[in-house]
């Protein structure tokens, strides 16, 4: 069994290291580096980024970035395409809060 956590934002790929446990929320197998302990037990960075009480780290930040960008740009992606989410990804995303607005800072590039 190998870790099913996907690393990367533009080039998404499986971690592939030997798994040592699993995510208590979505069930994907995880290596030690991608396991995050929290109030609901062990979680993958994706689930930890959306659930309360889990510490934030580089992986949870990457997970929420990927979530935000793929929801914004990855609409309609088919299986095998980079925008496609695996069933485990989708399960993790189902408990996700609404998509963040793309521009949060009121920045207007058209302003001259």
């Amino acid at each position: 069994m190998t870790c099913q956590w996907h690393t990367g934002l533009l080039v998404v790929r499986e971690c592939g290291l030997p798994a040592s446990g699993g995510c208590g929320m979505c069930g994907r197998t995880l290596c030690l580096a991608h396991t995050i302990p929290g109030p609901n037990g062990m979680a993958c960075p994706q689930c930890a980024s959306t659930a309360d009480g889990y510490p934030e780290n580089e992986d949870t930040q990457a997970a929420s970035d990927r979530n935000e960008y793929y929801q914004r740009y990855g609409e309609g992606a088919q299986f095998g395409e980079p925008g496609y989410f695996s069933p485990a990804d989708s399960a993790a995303l189902a408990s996700q809060s609404p998509v963040l607005p793309f521009r949060q800072d009121g920045y207007d590039p058209m302003e001259s």
């Binding site: 533009l10 970035d65 960008y69 914004r72 740009y73 990855g74 793309f102 920045y107």
Partner: peptide, 18 residues
Amino acid sequence: PPAKEVLGMFMRLRLLGM
């Protein structure tokens, strides 16, 4: 230019280059 929007440009290129 905000990094968020620049990253969005790369993301679009990535997703539409299939």
